[in-house]
């Protein structure tokens, strides 16, 4: 299918905008939207206005930013590693963030101010990245980098398991496990403002990476001859992904499959060019997370469904479908 980059991005942006509005409008309980909007504009602090501004708006904003981060970073990682199975979790920062967040939940429930959790998560993401850097060394090859990332992932996961194992009561276990499932319920504007700068820095570092990723598809040597410094590019993408994904995971927990599936989904529409995929994938990721987060509010389950569970449940079969379809295309 042929679509110009501008058309594709506009289309995705419109879908994302519609989903964003839907996300603000739809809740588990209905909200008189007009009244809420009027109260907000008049500066009237009614219950409806508070629900709109302080509960639904941050939720939709966080879904937008976190989804875009996951889609963008997934596309960047797949482009850099030239491997369709690469996902943003590979650099270790996601599990580093999750480990530190769980650590805060384990030791400080109810005793620390609420912003400590995302800040600790981001610190964990940075620490994991620094460890990967130290382990792999400055001039590391892609393989070494991945191996270091996998090792850090394993270490952080082991740490989380240890905390679960030592948890003081079944209630603590439940809270720790539920946090790791990924959820955007009841996040506040403060959470959004905390995640935004780090996410934006990550995104900004990926601006202009597209052309280099396109050259990289011709092979590392050829890319080098075209003026791309592979080591430099590698670190640039790794650090960008660490920052952005770390911020997302610290705020919403582990949300799987968006970073893996969305680039796959959109690749045919950008003529398989990794450079063009970046922006499209960011918008696509935002759409998918917004839609999934609307889904968890609409699906009537007894205990509230976590958005990370929904993305994995829908994502895995969808991924299989993509594989089957691509097999048919290659035959």
């Amino acid at each position: 299918m042929k679509l110009s980059q501008a058309k594709l991005c506009t289309l995705l942006a419109i879908v994302a905008l519609l989903l964003f509005i839907a996300s603000v409008a739809i809740g588990r309980d209905s909200l008189p939207l007009l009244t809420a909007l009027k109260d907000t504009l008049n500066g009237n602090d009614s219950v409806y206005a508070v629900i709109l501004n302080q509960i639904r708006l941050p939720r939709a904003l966080i879904a937008l930013v976190a989804g875009a981060t996951l889609g963008l970073c997934g596309a960047a990682m797949q482009g850099l590693l030239r491997n369709p199975l690469a996902s943003p979790g590979l650099v270790g920062s996601a599990s580093g963030a999750a480990f530190f967040a769980v650590l805060v939940l384990y030791f400080g429930t109810g005793m620390v101010p609420p912003y400590v959790l995302p800040v600790a998560g981001m610190f964990g993401a940075l620490l994991a990245t620094v460890l990967v850097y130290v382990l792999a060394g400055r001039d590391a090859s892609v393989t070494t980098l991945i191996l270091a990332g996998v090792a850090i992932n394993a270490l952080a996961t082991a740490g989380m398991s240890l905390l679960l194992n030592l948890a003081p009561s079944p209630f603590a276990v439940r809270e720790l496990v539920l946090w790791t499932l990924g959820d955007i319920t009841d996040r506040s504007m403060n959470d959004f403002w905390l995640m935004l700068p780090t996410s934006l820095i990550g995104w900004a570092m990926l601006i202009g990476v597209g052309g280099k990723l396109d050259s990289l598809t011709l092979g590392e040597r050829t890319a080098q001859s075209m003026g791309v410094n592979p080591v430099h590019l590698r670190w640039r993408i790794f650090i960008a992904v660490s920052l952005a994904v770390g911020a997302a995971v610290a705020t919403v927990g582990m949300i799987g499959f968006i970073g893996l599936v969305v680039p796959h989904l959109l690749r045919p529409y950008v003529a398989h060019e990794p450079g063009r995929l970046l922006a499209a994938s960011a918008l696509g990721g935002a759409c998918v997370l917004l839609a999934a987060d609307i889904g968890v509010r609409l699906i009537p389950t007894d205990s509230p469904l976590k958005v990370g569970v929904l993305t994995a449940l829908v994502g895995a079969p969808f991924f299989l479908h993509l594989i089957v379809r691509s097999r048919r295309e290659y035959l």
Partner: peptide, 15 residues
């Protein structure tokens, strides 16, 4: 509760 969702509790306190 001591282990209620910390985000929800923070949000309720904030409003």
């Amino acid at each position: 509760g001591q282990y209620s969702n910390s985000h929800t509790v923070a949000m309720l306190r904030e409003v």
